[in-house]
């Protein structure tokens, strides 16, 4: 069990630094889509929901899993779709790569 705790922490700490490093220089234009993408990615908790729903536990526990699975799937589907929709809007002809109101943004 000690092994489990340390191996989990060995993933957790580097992952925190990678997360910080990867998003630190995101252009201002992309803050909203990034938030929405991160929201969709966080729905990877769906993996736990699948294991609980498909497990051999009693029915009421599998119901909890199924509700969680429904909620996470909703986040995955709407999260990725809406992020893509936002990004498509960024590239509408006329406004160029940078949307209106972005002139004061420092990239």
């Amino acid at each position: 069990m000690i092994g489990e705790m340390w191996s989990t922490l060995f993933v957790f700490v580097p992952a925190s630094f990678i997360g910080l490093g990867v998003i630190r220089r995101v252009s201002r234009l992309l803050h909203t889509p990034l938030m929405s993408l991160a929201n969709a990615i966080s729905a990877i908790a769906v993996v736990g929901a699948i294991i609980v729903t498909g497990g051999d536990g009693p029915t009421w526990i599998r119901v909890l899993g199924a509700v969680a699975l429904f909620a996470s799937t909703t986040n995955i589907v709407s999260g990725f779709l809406i992020t893509d929709r936002m990004l498509k809007m960024l590239k509408t002809p006329g406004s160029g790569a940078a949307g209106p109101g972005e002139s004061k943004g420092k990239a």
Binding site: T53, F70, T74, S78, G79
Partner: peptide, 14 residues
């Protein structure tokens, strides 16, 4: 559960 998630998720993205 996944089908229900799609049913709610797609309209929510629009």
């Amino acid at each position: 559960a996944i089908a229900a998630g799609f049913l709610v998720g797609v309209p929510l993205s629009k």
